[in-house]
């Protein structure tokens, strides 16, 4: 059986944002029958990586069910936008990393779930170096 294809794309950006920027994006789902899709969740979130247990916080979230979509088809291209917060900024430390991403999670019949992450960076104004080890 072919796995459903999930695509998420940031519009008008190279994947680098500043605090207060508006993030425009669109997502689409393919290779699956419309009636197979029970729900789709979209999140813009940050999470931690590294030595410690993972922490995660959602900045923007929307959940759509077939009743919310045109012709009850959740596969169709869907756009969204959100204003990004002041913090936390993306960070690559020694035992701690902070990552931002857009995540689309789909819920299929028989309880199956799939998700796709599209990473992006939230950087301080006029900072193209990325933060490393407390200070670059």
């Amino acid at each position: 059986m072919i796995e459903p294809l999930i695509s998420l794309q940031f519009l008008g950006s190279n994947g680098i944002y500043r605090p207060g920027d508006e993030l425009h994006a669109e997502y689409q789902i393919d290779a699956v029958e419309a009636d197979e899709l029970q729900a789709v969740e979209l999140s813009v979130l940050w999470f931690t990586e590294g030595k410690g247990d993972e922490d995660l916080a959602v900045h923007y979230f929307e959940r759509r069910v077939p009743a919310d979509a045109d012709e009850h088809d959740l596969r169709r291209l869907h756009r969204f936008k959100t204003i990004l917060p002041n913090s936390p900024l993306s960070y690559t430390g020694e035992i701690l990393k902070i990552r931002w991403c857009g995540r689309v999670r789909i819920f299929l019949r028989r309880g199956k779930e799939l998700f796709f992450d599209q990473p992006f960076e939230l950087r301080a104004p006029a900072d193209d170096s990325n933060h490393k080890g407390g200070a670059a």
Binding site: G50, P88, Y91, L96, I98, H131, G134, A135
Partner: peptide, 16 residues
């Protein structure tokens, strides 16, 4: 404060 300093950070299991 260094110009490229990361800001303070606090979550449940990690902090800077």
């Amino acid at each position: 404060i260094p110009a490229d300093a990361m800001h303070s950070f606090q979550s449940n299991h990690n902090s800077l």
